[in-house]
Design a binder for these strands. Structure first.
Lengths: 345, 345
DNA sequence: TGATATACTGTTACCAGTAACGTAAAATTT
DNA sequence: AAATTTTACGTTACTGGTAACAGTATATCA
């Protein structure tokens, strides 16, 4: 593969002149520029950003570490990150951790070795933070969706899980539900705790006593939703509504509910944190709280890139909290509820 | 950031010895290895793969160029690619072209500059192939999902679109439909042509005359599906069934159908090429032909990596064609159809 | 016991760019 | 016309690894 020296020789100039032409620097006579451009064309020269990155100590690449690109929330978020990166001439390396802290660590190590300029991280590690090692190595990092305890100096872009869960729970309560099961992810993950907190706040506000058997810290996955829902449905005093802590949990819950030969919303209500766009467009059924995933990705990427480019040198740590939105559809039995509420229950 | 020389000095050895330890080469005395490992630990050394890639001329990175990660088909495919890459210690840079050949070209240029080891490409360019320039530069490439005319020497992994469309059309015909509208992507894209071909083959086999007004080369997007469906529904002689050329088109079609205040499947049948997993789990309604997207990603990545590692030196170009599967659900009016067929229509 | 093989470690050169500095020629100022 | 500035280049050194080769010390062999 031809190098900058091949071009230089062909054009009868030094490699520095070629370098200047490629990088659009001034200090090159127009005729010289033409000569060089022609040589590049003829030779079919493609600059080697590897070498460039190596001397400049910047790679124009960021890492995106999420749990699963297959989750529509992260898909959309990833799209926001990529679009923004692209706009700023950055590339994105993407990594799926599957909620496995070890895999996360492995990926971060790889990314650090590649000397990426920064990381956007939806961490699976939560409280235990072995990844500290990495972050200490001074890679600019923006946490997304989830916070990490003990790393309070990092930028964060996330949704307001407490408020979202509060809204959703309130909605269920307003429809007459008093026994509401909630299923969230692993206790280590900040969103899991936050969503339970919002849920409990709504209960408290309505004077409904907490029942720990209705609160399931499980996994943010279909299996998690499925298993925990079966547990909830097997309770002597079965809940009348289930709050799926994310979209995958809600899907798993639905499968379990179907297995119990129950109907949503007639026999049991089901709501979800995070929408599933492709579903809602076809079948606007699930009542959900939705987060601006795309914006989240965009904002995180912008923040990170600004940090990388050093435009934010003086600035303090940033924490961006985006507000969720309640979208009422049918899965909580809204129509039925009209009547229930009408009876002044 | 510490370098290999810092480690070497600390351990009292040469940089080569450190290099050997890092890369697990033999020829290092156990005690020396220990010394080096200790120094690495103490200094917090992270190898610089940038420098390594630079001298070794390989980056352990592949590029994944698709049209839109937001499309569940590509999401799943991407996951297959990433998992396989990860397993082989490769990273993945991902790129969304939005079916824009210029963006595609831009990305390929960036990837070439980064000296990635290979590309997996779902091209938006189709017949015009400006990307030839890139491929000529000898980057191992595997085409995925779509072929490119004139580039017959590249490996391909794709679904059998002709067969898939044939199955789906046959199914509609078996349910009594004779006027079937089909909407696919841009004519440049191989899957668009293939799907129309399969559709026509099924029609011909059943002695149904072609009607070009029922064949829409549009865009593989919701808007494409939406607009073309409106056109189809505005025909004097409206089709009784619509074949969405991919999942996004089907979603757009559904929106348009709803706007016309038509019911699926009572007033009109709708089928789709490519499933939408999160939808079908919640609401198994759409009758579809589905492709093994994950496997497609895995196979493409394996093929590419084998090529990169040179294990396939002698081997000819590979073409892997995966078979689609018809999943009959409700959106083509299957139950109703029983009756229709019963009447021997 | 000397010759030869083996195990281990170091030296040198190179990968493809760019920053920083240097310099000659042209342009401008005095 | 000489001095000074500006323009347009070139030279050198360096980025952090590794391949290839070169030792040296120790083990094995004839």
């Amino acid at each position: 593969m031809p190098t900058i020296y091949d071009v230089a020789k062909k054009a009868g100039v030094s490699s520095m002149t070629v370098s200047r032409v490629i990088n659009g620097k001034r200090d090159v006579k127009p005729e010289t520029r033409e000569k060089v451009l022609k040589a590049i064309e003829e030779i079919g020269y493609v600059p080697n950003s590897l070498a460039r990155s190596f001397v400049l100590q910047k790679t124009k690449t960021i890492g995106l570490v999420i749990t699963d690109i297959t989750n529509p929330f992260f898909t959309t978020l990833a799209r926001g990150v990529e679009d923004t990166a692209m706009k700023n001439q950055f590339s994105v390396i993407f990594c799926n951790t599957d909620e496995d802290p070890e895999k996360e660590l492995l990926y971060l190590e790889v990314l650090a070795r590649k000397r990426i300029d920064g990381v956007i991280l939806a961490s699976a590690s939560g409280k235990r933070a072995p990844l500290k090692s990495l972050l200490i190595k001074n890679i600019p990092t923006v946490l997304i969706d989830r916070e990490i305890e003990g790393l309070d100096d990092l930028d964060v872009v996330k949704g307001d899980s407490v408020q979202g869960a509060y809204l959703l729970t309130k909605h269920l309560i307003s429809l007459g539900h008093r026994r509401i099961g909630i299923i969230v992810g692993n206790r280590n993950i900040s969103t899991a705790e936050d969503r339970v907190e919002g849920y409990k706040r709504a209960l408290a506000e309505s004077g409904i006593p907490e029942d720990e058997s209705l609160v399931k810290f499980s996994q943010y996955s279909r299996e998690g939703g499925y298993n925990s829902t079966k547990e909830l449905l097997s309770l002597k005093n079965r809940p009348t509504a289930i709050f799926g802590g994310n979209n995958f949990i809600a899907i798993g819950a639905l499968v379990a509910i179907r297995e119990f030969e129950l109907k949503v919303p007639d026999d049991i209500a089901l709501v979800s944190f995070d929408d599933i766009e492709s579903l809602s467009q076809v079948y606007p059924f699930l009542t959900v709280v939705t987060q601006p995933a795309y914006s989240m990705g965009v904002i995180a990427a912008e923040l990170l890139i600004r940090r990388i480019e050093g435009r934010d040198k003086i600035e303090e740590r940033r924490k961006v909290i985006l507000q969720p939105e309640l979208i009422v559809r049918e899965s909580a039995g809204e129509k039925l509820a009209e009547g229930v509420r009408g009876e002044g229950r």
